[in-house]
């Protein structure tokens, strides 16, 4: 399987934040014969692993959150129109007449209502909770399929633009999940520096502490890498808080993660000639990394980012070259005896 195909397939799995288990079956169809499936836990974390086969080997955790932003149905109104509330940070600017899928008893199509110009009182966008979703169904028919609490996601339509740039929904963070899984699938068992677990954590977009804390607590790894998307530089953004598409994954230096492990990962990239970009995230990375770091007695963690433009839209944009480089970085990381040794010394 090609990395691009895995990214597209994984990102199309329905996994609105808090409803990750709706994706379990599809996830196993895609990955079941490629990696050992450990469990889907009580909160909705999916865990896969590949063991190195040695006794007392270190336990390495790769975390990528598997949930995606979406909405939740709060009311079924007249003529089958739905009211919703956001699950995660949804930009009102992309919502008018957007295509969505409502995951009721079965998935059904919908379109977000857009107010025609002759009825607009001002140019302010309605808040997400003021939006209505058009199901094309009567209230009775809609109620047969949908209920209060049904999740709603954007419609998955993927494409490749020039220069191997990919567009579509939910690359945040399932493109990173795909890279972690792809790297592990392709790493020979004998080359692994330890037993490697991929934690596809839940609810990052809604309650960061929920999913990954439970996952990291139960896995109790010796050290970990959190892989999430990082805001790419586009017009009207600041260079120091963004990364550049096509220049490789980012490595965050942050007081909220493990600096020695971060620097060790940086040195590894330098040594192996893996393109990367350093970014300073002084007191927070805005990712799962801090939560992982503060789990149990403390878990050393490095925060890696995949450059992504137009985050939280249904047309997020990533560079396949960055994804390939990210896979290479992850491969080196999970196969690095040097890092494993450094982490072991830390314990001693």
């Amino acid at each position: 399987m090609q990395l691009k195909d895995l990214i597209f397939e994984l990102c199309a799995v329905p996994s609105v934040s808090g409803f990750e288990k709706r994706g379990t079956q599809r996830l196993l169809e895609i990955l079941g014969d490629k990696l050992e499936f450990v469990a889907v836990d009580g909160v909705g974390n999916h865990i896969f692993r590949k063991c190195c086969g040695r006794q007392n080997a270190p336990k390495i955790m790769l975390d990528a959150h598997f949930d995606e932003i979406g909405m939740i149905v709060t009311d079924i109104t007249e003529a089958g129109f739905l009211r919703v509330a956001p699950l995660g940070g949804i930009d009102a600017a992309i919502m008018q007449a957007a295509d969505v899928i409502i995951y009721g008893k079965e998935p059904i199509r919908g379109v977000v209502c857009s107010t025609p110009p002759h009825l607009r009182e001002d140019d302010e966008l309605p808040e997400i909770t003021a939006l209505m979703i058009d199901t094309g169904l009567s209230k009775e028919r809609a109620s047969e399929i949908i209920s209060i609490g049904s999740p709603v996601g954007f419609a998955p339509v993927y494409a490749e633009l020039l220069g191997q740039r990919l567009v579509g929904k939910s690359f945040d963070d399932k493109a990173c999940a795909a890279c972690a899984l792809f790297a592990l699938i392709n790493a020979p068992t004998s080359s692994l520096a330890g037993d490697v677990y991929v934690l596809l954590s839940c609810t990052e977009e809604t309650s960061r502490l929920g999913g990954v804390t439970a996952g990291a607590f139960s896995l109790s790894p010796d050290y970990a890498m959190v892989i999430d998307v990082n805001l790419a530089r586009v017009p009207d953004t600041k260079s120091f808080e963004t990364v550049v598409l096509g220049k490789g994954p980012s490595i965050s230096v942050s007081a909220a993660t493990d600096v020695p492990l971060t620097r060790a990962t940086q040195r590894l990239c330098e040594k192996k000639g893996i393109a990367h970009q350093m970014i300073a995230a002084p007191s927070s990375t805005g990712t799962n990394a801090t939560s992982v770091n503060l789990t149990r007695e403390g878990i050393p963690v490095v925060d890696i980012g995949l450059p992504l433009a137009y985050m939280h839209t249904y047309n997020e944009l990533i560079d396949l070259n960055d994804c390939n480089t990210l896979c290479a970085l992850i491969s080196e990381f999970i196969c690095s005896g040097e890092i494993a040794e450094q982490m072991r010394c830390l314990e001693g």
Binding site: G89, D91, L161, V167, P235, T237, Y310, M311, T313, L317
Partner: peptide, 12 residues
Amino acid sequence: VDGIIASKAIHH
């Protein structure tokens, strides 16, 4: 040629 209409993300 495929393209997307875009601007900076909500985070910015």
